[in-house]
Simulated assay, not measured.
Amino acid sequence: MERECIVIGIHGLANKPPADEKTRWWKAAIAEGIARNQGIAAPEFSFDFVYWADLRYDAPLSEDGNHEPYRPYDGTGPLPGGEKAPALTTKDVMAPVYAAIDAVEEATGVTLADDAILEHRFDDLWHYHAEQDFTRQVRSRLVERLRAFRSHRILLVAHSMGAVIAYDVLRTLERDDPSLRVDHLVTAASPLGLAKVKLKFEAEHGPLRVPNNVLAWTNLADGEDVVAIMGALDKDYAANDVGIGIKDQRVVNAFRRPDGEPNPHKSYGYLRTPEFSSLVSPYAIRRHEAVQAAEHS
Rank of each mutant, 00 (worst) to 15 (best):
A188S: 12
A189G: 15
A189V: 08
P191A: 02
P191W: 05
L192H: 03
G193M: 07
G193R: 00
G193Y: 04
L194M: 15
L194F: 14
L194G: 07
L194Q: 14
A195S: 13
K196T: 10
K196Y: 11
V197A: 06
V197F: 02
K198S: 09
K198M: 15
K198Q: 15
K198N: 12
L199D: 00
L199A: 11
K200T: 13
K200M: 14
E202Y: 07
E204C: 09
E204M: 12
H205K: 06
H205Y: 06
H205N: 09
G206Q: 01
P207W: 06
L208Q: 00
L208T: 04
R209A: 14
R209M: 02
V210D: 12
V210A: 13
P211G: 01
N212P: 00
N212A: 12
N213V: 10
N213R: 09
N213L: 14
V214Q: 04
V214E: 04
V214R: 08
V214C: 11
L215V: 11
L215W: 13
L215Q: 15
A216F: 11
A216N: 10
A216G: 13
W217L: 02
T218S: 11
N219M: 01
N219L: 07
L220R: 03
A221P: 00
A221G: 05
D222S: 04
G223F: 00
D225F: 00
V226Y: 03
V226C: 06
V227R: 00
V227N: 10
V227G: 02
A228W: 10
I229D: 03
I229N: 00
I229A: 09
I229E: 03
M230T: 14
A232F: 04
A232M: 14
L233M: 05
D234H: 15
D234A: 15
D234L: 09
K235V: 13
K235I: 11
D236R: 06
Y237D: 07
N240T: 01
N240D: 13
V242W: 06
G243N: 11
G243E: 12
I244C: 05
G245I: 07
I246D: 08
D248C: 06
Q249T: 15
Q249N: 10
R250D: 12
R250Q: 12
R250N: 02
V251M: 10
V252H: 04
V252R: 09
V252D: 02
N253T: 08
A254W: 02
R256T: 12
R256Q: 06
R257H: 12
D259F: 09
G260R: 12
G260K: 12
G260A: 11
P262L: 04
P262N: 09
N263T: 07
P264R: 06
H265T: 04
H265A: 03
K266M: 12
S267I: 14
S267M: 08
Y268K: 08
Y268G: 07
Y268A: 11
G269K: 09
G269C: 03
Y270A: 07
Y270F: 13
Y270H: 06
L271A: 11
R272P: 05
T273A: 13
T273C: 15
T273Y: 08
P274E: 09
P274R: 04
E275G: 04
E275N: 06
E275C: 03
E275S: 08
F276C: 04
F276K: 09
F276T: 03
F276D: 02
S277E: 03
